[in-house]
Simulated scan of single mutants.
Amino acid sequence: MPTPAASPAASSHLVDLHDLRLDEARALVSPVTNKATAPPNATRYLQSMIDGLCELSLRDPLTGLANRRHFLNVVECEIDRVARSGESALLLLLDIDHFKHVNDTHGHLAGDRVLQEVARILATCVRPMDTLARYGGEEFAVVLPGCQAAFGHTVAERIRQSVEAASIRVASSKEVHVTISIGGAFALQWIRSTASLWVDRADLQLYKAKAAGRNRVHIEEQPSSTVTAEEKGLLFGTLYPPSGWDDPSPQNPTDSAF
């Protein structure tokens, strides 16, 4: 079976180690290097090399998506943002159904091609502000900031349908179709939760989608975490008047409209 070409979406996100010219960088930082004879753009080159290595450390090498480390960092930042702003955020976990069957039937190279193509499809379904990651194996994750509860299921369903409709070529004369199951959970507004708890809640919904027959979406209802005006005052260091208190200043009876 011929080896499928790498996904353009994946390769465009990856840094080629040859482009980093690590041997030249090592020479530049060597103690024996004469700083006076170093090329004038040495600092700029070293910075670009560092940036390239950082990019490599945050990307999955097969799909070009964010890796698990980067994803968890984003989750932590989003939890902090939602705790301070009270805005909505949705976390989706997506798993390719019966992926082992693809590997067993068509081989691991075909399985890799399926992962790359699913990653490409998912990338077309999310916004630039969203974070799409390969969470592990055949599992992906998406963090969607500012996603209201009314739209969560619609977004997830559009993603599911896009994968289901795709024909994935794994050989010159062979195409396969796969489906995904999706579980989702909203961040707790005004509450500083943890990354592991948020992921666990989404994972529970993914398990429910699998148990219900796969190729479906299961999203937890957005939990109620309403914060009163007084509590907001404590959060931000601003004293809000109690609810129902229109104006604490005394009024002149002659100012009354009656």
Rank of each mutant, 00 (worst) to 15 (best):
L28N: 06
V29L: 14
V32Y: 12
V32W: 11
V32R: 14
T33I: 03
K35F: 08
A36D: 10
A36F: 03
T37S: 13
P40H: 03
P40Q: 11
P40L: 02
N41I: 01
A42H: 13
A42L: 03
A42P: 01
A42I: 07
A42W: 14
T43V: 13
R44G: 11
L46N: 02
L46D: 08
L46Y: 05
L46M: 09
S48Y: 06
I50A: 12
G52M: 07
G52Q: 07
L53A: 05
L53R: 09
L56V: 15
L58S: 14
L58I: 02
R59W: 10
R59K: 15
P61D: 14
L62P: 02
T63C: 00
T63N: 06
T63Y: 07
L65H: 08
A66L: 07
A66G: 05
N67F: 04
F71P: 05
F71M: 12
D80V: 14
R81L: 01
V82P: 09
A83T: 05
R84G: 11
R84T: 11
S85V: 05
S85Q: 10
G86F: 07
E87A: 14
E87Y: 09
S88R: 10
A89K: 09
L92Y: 09
L94Y: 07
L94F: 12
I96G: 01
H101P: 03
V102Q: 10
N103V: 08
N103Q: 09
D104E: 07
G111D: 06
G111V: 10
D112R: 00
D112W: 11
R113S: 07
R113W: 00
V114K: 08
V114H: 06
L115R: 09
L115N: 04
V118R: 01
A119P: 01
I121D: 00
C125G: 04
C125P: 00
D130S: 03
Y135D: 02
G136V: 03
G137D: 08
E139Y: 06
F140H: 09
P145N: 11
G146L: 14
C147G: 06
C147P: 06
Q148I: 02
V155S: 08
A156Y: 05
A156E: 06
R158Y: 03
R160K: 14
R160I: 11
R160L: 13
R160Y: 12
